[in-house]
Design a binder for these strands. Sequence first.
DNA 1: AAGCAGGACCTCT
DNA 2: AGAGGTCCTGCTT
Length: 248
Amino acid sequence: PGLNTSQLPPTVYGPRIGLTENSLTLMERSRGSLYFSCFDMLFTEDAAWLVKLSEASPALALPMTRMESREEPEQCPVIDSQEQGLSPELERQVEERSLEQVQSMVVGEVLKDIETACKLLNITPGMLVCTTPAATISHFQELPASEELWSEADSSCSGQPIHLWQFLRELLLKPHNYGRCIRWLNKEKGIFKIEDSAHVARLWGLRKNRPAMNYDKLSRSIRQYYKKGIIRKPDVSQRLVYQFVHPV
DNA sequence: AAGCAGGACCTCT
DNA sequence: AGAGGTCCTGCTT
């Protein structure tokens, strides 16, 4: 039996990612397309999903970007940068960064929505894969290594809120997206460096819906892991460098 | 100034 | 009870 999306209340998809009533109406009409777009978001290594989303339904993509610039203008400085006449390179960096933030926020929201859907349907992530439409399954099969897919699905659909160490691992698994803010120094030993502490903290705050999150608080949470034997400082302690006690 | 270490207390699930 | 979030003091880089 396929996943009957009509069983899901509109709130599963709608309000948290800032969709308008018009968008929801369109979504109802083209649910299949949205469905694919959401999954594409989870699996692509770049921001192509935004294009796909807008292709599927142009009205869907726009409200989200508007919402982002309305609620957190300092995090979406693309428009400002044009007014201030920044260099093309700086503009590109700013644009990439805002796209990254929007992507992260939307992915976070979608993961939470999937989590909610899993709870509502009382299913596990594995069942979700098995019950998606055939085309989605074939899309799944096209993926390369599925380690990343399962790490995301596990952390978002297990019914438990994501742990900070899981979140850090997820960022580290996507160097293409997050390599500028966090990266492996020695993956075998589990040693990683937070290159942009403010950015990582912001991403964590978005993921946990904690707008006041900063690196001071995030690092306090990391230090709680010392006792638990999850994360430690490397033998040669360096600023912003930590080590997973049990590397994958 | 920014990061680090850890205590204390709080909220949320 | 567990997992942080928040605030804090004091120390280090």
